[in-house]
């Protein structure tokens, strides 16, 4: 995957400009930057949820698995049913591997509404495995995870990378990965919101 001179906007406001990087199979790239600096906007633009303001994204079609802040879980479906749904949507058959990888097997028949925040997050991350997609775009994946679960997640990402996948991860925690770091503050758009992004909100 290659990104060249990409400009990102959120709600019509330019947030980032001139973003360029490449990401090869087996590589991970960590996005760093303070809150509101445009990490989420960059991920959403690459995922195709927002049109770029300029520049180009070279990316194979249908290769992105987006892990957002929200996990996309249905409260009244069980853990296994939630995973089975996303597996069916992506025509992928890795439900039991995903349950194993995030140690969700004992919870498989529990409705998602009875899970703790960390367990929900683990289920949300397990969803990435059943997409069968090579490029993971992860937005703060370790929120509400305990140290053990962060370890599980790190292991899942390493397995994904060694299987030829790639990952772009916006995070503040150390996942124990050998990842290059991309500081998005270097690409802040001129005339965009100040780093922190709160200036407008409280003006």
């Amino acid at each position: 995957m290659r990104v060249e001179d990409l400009g990102c906007q959120r709600g019509g406001v330019p947030v980032l400009e001139g973003v360029s990087f490449t990401l090869a199979a087996g590589e991970a790239l960590a996005l760093r930057g303070p809150n509101g600096s445009g990490k989420t906007t960059l991920l959403r633009t690459i995922a195709g949820l927002q049109p770029p303001a300029g520049g180009r994204i070279e990316l194979a079609e249908d290769s992105v698995a987006y892990g957002a802040h929200a996990d996309g879980l249905k409260a009244t479906l069980t853990v296994a049913e939630n995973l089975a749904f996303w597996a069916a949507i992506h025509a992928c058959d890795k439900v039991s591997e995903a349950l194993e990888a995030f140690e969700l097997r004992p919870l498989a028949t529990r409705p998602a509404q009875k899970l703790s925040a960390g367990q929900k997050r683990r289920l949300g991350l397990a969803r990435l495995l059943v997409t069968g997609r090579p490029l993971w775009l992860l937005d703060e994946p370790t929120v509400s995870l305990d140290a053990d679960s962060v370890g599980l997640f790190g292991r899942a990402v390493r397995a994904h990378l060694s299987a030829g996948g790639a990952a772009l991860i916006a995070t503040h925690t150390d996942l124990g990965l050998e990842a290059r770091v991309l500081d998005v503050t270097a690409f802040a758009a001129t005339g965009g919101p100040a780093p922190g992004g709160f200036a407008e909100a409280f003006a």
Binding site: G48, V64, A65, H69, D71, L73, K74, I89, H90, R127
Partner: peptide, 14 residues
């Protein structure tokens, strides 16, 4: 939309 499924469906192959 509230639980994020709609965004994930938008990136899904359907």
């Amino acid at each position: 939309w509230e639980d994020g499924s709609l965004e994930l469906l938008a990136t899904a192959p359907i």
